[in-house]
Nucleic acid binder design. Structure first.
Lengths: 368, 368
DNA sequence: TTGTATGCGTTATCAT
DNA sequence: ATGATAACGCATACAA
């Protein structure tokens, strides 16, 4: 008659297949199934084959929730970024996602929207989701770090990237921003520029502070004087870049180069220079910072500093996985510093360069 | 002597606090804790207060894995996108993430890297993670849809966005691409253009097919002839845009406008026109599609079609949550179509327009 | 209003 | 080489 109960769950049954189903079907215990699927040595090859075949037939998907609950460890990683727009964070996240997937992890992304309170809620959500580790790029408004201590106390691996807590007792992957501004400044010096201005960012953010330092170091290295007039602090907007350039061009002795701590600001400066009929780079050379997409599109294209977004993401995952896998055997926190890369483009490369100022570079050691 | 066992777990104990811990501490049952925390009506207000206070004190975070396992439903949503770079997908994901967070869900992001096999693995990973629903934008190379049927069979809510399966039996949120190209073409007509070229994309992709249709509809509407010479099929790269423009400008009767199905391609065309000394928009007017970031930065800025990225993300989540919450009571699949928006910028807006071709628009009904 | 007991799907321990 | 059983943390049917 009508078959009842014996009918195996059809692949289209609606309810996911569990190990118990497979065990019943094969007339073995769940233990055997579990071991066969995780390739345990104690299971015979023919049994393994049978189990795997059946699993494929029913399209068995392990319930990772149950697995994680039992093992106390999930295959999820948490990411908190200030926002996910523009070029930088999507690229880093891309790098993270790629590396994480390769290692068998999935990734939960949260945005803090530059809000410390939201960041705190993100942490709680990730703790609740039982992630195996957390990667954070700090929100601008974060001043208390208690929510991160809670993470540490739980023994949950935590790695900062790009925007990190100060100090040596955290794991972090950051760009050497100072080096970035330094090589940009050096490049401008090599182009023969002698009055190099700086568009600086908000100094309470480490990255901008470091870029400012790199600029100063570059001047010192070349034996150039620091002129307060040529340093403007901005919020790194295109508009402010244009405004600063306008003022500079009105000076009796305007700059012959601008080293900007950000691309948008550099773009504004560039556009203003052209509006005023000052040629770029021959009248004023310009460098940006971040390698935003538009820097190859603007005319002229803008020399800038690449922040190694993909590498940053990958390095962050590598460090996090090390922490996860070395469970318990805590090792000393590490800071990984990535070398920025100078992308020379039209906005700063001059055809005719003056003779290299011999001896200037040699003065570096003495100057420090 | 030394206190043993009675010592409450310090907030920095290392192991997360569970309901059992709270129950022990208060001398009540886990049931009471569970109910108090989920605000069950049967628990007295003073008890609730006590429990909540203790939970706060110990920084209790519910284990969502356990909860989801027990309830059979998690608070996770899965997203699969082809990639997470450029402007479009990050923006949509941003919209999704915002809406999902507001509704108390977290989001797992997977990239298919335009690879159907990877997309299939993504689906499996999300099934394994017991997500409550899945949002997909199809990879270019996806031709079989069996992995999605598996999702449907499990009764798991599934919503496509932007790149959807054909047909009416799927839930999807898409942009009206045809309308987008149509309003772009209309705009060019209104600027007095009469020989309007089209940079078309790969026609096996619905979005490009629809944009092509919109362009044709626009011509028909204005009573303009279709000239095969003025239609070029490309992969939408900047380079191809430049190449197409070069060929067009070499024609005895070159176009006076270009309606491109993508911004990069439009940019290439624009740059080539300027290289050849043809003024934009007065020599040739140009429109793009996608509102890429660089369209406001190029000179002149590029008229383009905004794809309502944020709205698309939000609409996708809304639809998905409806499906999730109407658990079981399946309703008919819905397609939500978003209206694109024309962003008029310098590359197409002419100072002096010829007299509007009276009657042309009225001919629309007759022409179809 | 509160408590007891059970199970979600998996894995680890201990036995055979 | 395989099986029985307990436990992970939570939610709920049922009892009191």
């Amino acid at each position: 008659m009508a078959p009842r109960k014996k009918t195996p769950a059809a692949p289209s049954s609606g309810t996911p297949v569990s190990m118990a189903d497979l065990a019943r079907e094969l007339g073995v215990s769940m233990t055997t199934i579990s071991r066969a699927l995780s390739n345990h040595y104690s299971i015979g090859p023919e049994m393994k084959a049978k189990v795997q075949k059946l699993a494929k037939k029913y399209n068995y998907q392990p319930n990772r929730l149950a697995s994680a609950l039992r093992k106390g460890k999930s295959k999820l990683l948490g990411i908190i970024v200030p926002y996910i727009e523009g070029r930088f964070f999507p690229s880093v996240v891309h790098g993270i996602e790629t590396a994480a997937t390769k290692a068998g992890y999935n990734v939960i992304i949260c945005q803090s929207h530059e809000d410390a309170a939201q960041e705190r809620r993100n942490i709680e959500a990730l703790l609740s989701a039982q992630v195996a580790g957390i990667m954070v790029s700090l929100s601008r408004t974060t001043t208390s770090y208690r929510h991160f201590e809670e993470v540490q106390n739980r023994g949950l691996p935590l790695v900062f990237f790009d925007r990190s807590m100060e100090g040596e007792d955290v794991n972090a992957v950051v760009l050497d921003d100072q080096e970035g501004a330094l090589i940009a400044t050096r490049h401008l010096v090599a182009q023969g520029c002698r009055r190099i201005a700086h568009l600086a960012g908000p100094q309470h953010l480490t990255i901008y502070k470091n870029r400012y330092r790199g600029y100063l170091e570059g001047l010192r290295e070349a034996g150039l004087p620091v002129d307060e007039e040529l340093i403007v602090f901005t919020d790194m907007t295109q508009l402010e870049g244009a405004g600063a350039m306008r003022n500079w061009l009105a000076l009796p002795n305007p700059p012959d180069a601008v080293c900007s701590a950000g691309d948008y600001c550099a773009l504004g400066a560039l556009q203003e220079a052209r509006r005023q009929g000052v040629p770029v780079p021959d009248g004023v050379a310009i460098t940006g910072f971040s390698n935003e997409a538009f820097t190859v599109i603007s005319e002229p294209s803008i020399t800038t500093i690449d922040q190694r977004c993909e590498e940053m993401g990958q390095a962050t995952v590598r460090l996090l996985l090390e922490l996860i896998e070395s469970h318990g055997t805590a090792f000393a926190p590490r800071q990984i510093v990535l070398r920025p890369e100078l992308l020379m483009r039209s906005s700063s490369v001059r055809e005719a360069k003056p003779a290299a100022p011999a001896g200037k570079r040699a003065a570096k050691t003495a100057a420090r």
